[in-house]
Design a binder for these strands. Sequence first.
RNA 1: GCCUGGGUAGCUCAGUCGGUAGAGCAGCGCAUUCGUAAUGCGCAGGUCAGGAGUUCGAAUCUCCUCCCAGGCUCCA
Length: 660
Amino acid sequence: MIDVTLPDGSTRTLEEGTRALDVARSIGARLAKDALVASINGVLTDLSHPVADGDVVSIVTPASDAGRDVLRHSTAHVLAQAVLRLWPGAHYAIGPAIRDGFYYDFSLPNSAHFSDDDLVRIETVMRQIVAEDQPFLRSEYSIEEGLELFKDQPFKVEIIAGVREGGSPEDVTEVGGSVVSTYSNTPEFQDLCRGPHVPSTKRLGHFKLMRVAGAYWRGDEKRPQLQRIYGTAWESSEALAAHLAQLEEAERRDHRRLGQEMDLFSFPSQLGPGLAVFHPRGGTVRRVMEEYSRARHVAGGYEFVNTPHITKAELFETSGHLDWYAESMYPPMDLDDGQQYYLKPMNCPFHVLIFNARQRSYRELPLRMFEFGSVYRYEKSGAVHGLTRVRGMTQDDAHIFCTREQMAQELSDLLSFVLALLRDFGLNDFYLELSTRPEVKSVGSDEEWDEAEATLAQVARGANLELVLDEGGGAFYGPKISVQARDAIGRTHQLSTIQLDFQTPQRFQASYVAADNARHRPIMIHRALFGSVERFMAILIEHYAGNMPTWMSPEQVKVLGVRDDHDDFAQDVATRLRLDGVRVSVDPANEPLGARVRRAKKEKVPYILVVGGDDLVADTVGINARGANDPERGVSVDEFRARLRQEIAEHGSPELTRGA
RNA sequence: GCCUGGGUAGCUCAGUCGGUAGAGCAGCGCAUUCGUAAUGCGCAGGUCAGGAGUUCGAAUCUCCUCCCAGGCUCCA
């Protein structure tokens, strides 16, 4: 007999030769029925795996992160089986579980491609395989046997051979260590895989194939491009439906769609990809964002600077950007005197020149220079995406020059400043990411990097937020903290970045005179809070689903007379609001009231004021607020003005706090 | 940049076999005067992304270019 320990600490005595599934049965028939895989001493295994004396065993069911991963991975195998059934001779590469689903990469005979119709056919076959209730059977082979077994599958051979030659960690994972493990559910289909898998295909079924895409083999653009099929899979049809509903919600909020509908901005094709124009309404949102940011920066002790959009090559040679990023810079303009001029992709070197414009004293530090700096980056044509990835953008960019002694305090003040500003824009669910030195593509000594990383890590830990490590994700000149924010539908966006840089001041030989009368090198902090104004606006539009808080709304109030003999009073109300600084317009009564209310609602105006005969006499308005169900009648104009002034001043968004 | 799929009126879309363009919304005009999500009638609106080719004839077939979408790669 053997003893195993369960997650609650209890033990169970079972016969020798017992499998994980038997442990589940010993706990309960219902659990045994739900069980997908087991975790033995923290390692996920098939249910058929034997347990030994002293093992700690827990049973993994579908409605858990581990369970969903297994479901998705097993569904990917079924996808591959279906594709091989439909396209004999297809080559299959890898098919992991990913967030919300799975994918599998293929190469079809005669360089054929999947079409959208093919997805339907494949899904049909997958459902047949599920209905056939095929078991997932594990086998183990030597590497040589594995090479023979998959001799017609070049991608599998490459993976196995990779393991034999030392192998990348991914390859070892794929294969299952120095033993080649495979899963077959029928003689028809066998796949190289570490596992574990669900006991049988019958346990799958709540999945949907989503799309076809090209993907480079091993993620390397110099390698062949494979055909990738993406799918999503869940533990129940309800969970699947909820996921699909979430995708629809994201589509409804898409800033590109809302930007069009709300007349905020557009991308004229005459300008080229990734180059946006802001229409008056979008321009208003943008202006309000920038004005508020400026006011906060003034209060935060920043000085305002301005720099040109083009520069001689020398500047970016000195900064080092041309060494690493020449490909994603617009090509240079060759001018008459043989000089090359570049559009600027970054503001930092310009700000260093301002620092260097005269001798600096330690008394001036920290010196904080801020600029809404427009930069141009030649993003690959396939990479541009709405306002979130553009070729021309404006960064809310600042560079802080300070001493080494000041930097820890400055960074921690800065982090508080950043979070406060983001909260003012209505984001309040954050975590931090610490990005360290890149393996290639970096400059500077190990000591400098170690000090910079240690300082940032200390500051990040002090913020009392979840902290995630992003190994090797730093800039070439220094490590960074990035602030990640979760939006209203739970997606995360990388927003602000704070980078610590010992290199650029050296490259530009920046210095200040300290109390000891000697020259010292300042350190430099790069930081952008919005990231870019364009991208931040896109994130806010999606966060609010277009219902911008009143203080940011392009139009805050629309006044509607009931009949045209009320239009003069409507104008009067609008004029009084305008004197308060409110963005307001009147929609005259040559259409029925219902039609005008409907239009204003579709425009997402926060307040629709309806004025009729009663209001004209009593100097009141009827308030139809965005997100509210019933209009509020007979509110005095002055009362409404006071409420609105307060709401705008506090940056409140009442319809959100009302839960509408 | 690569793979796949797209581009028809300001927007959303229809357009049969290759026979020369259509709806709804928006816009404009007239009528309507109305208390909270669509008043009626009329008018106007198009180099079918652009160019070349095949054809008696091209929105439709072929090629090239531009732009968009979803991925991959990249993201200072």
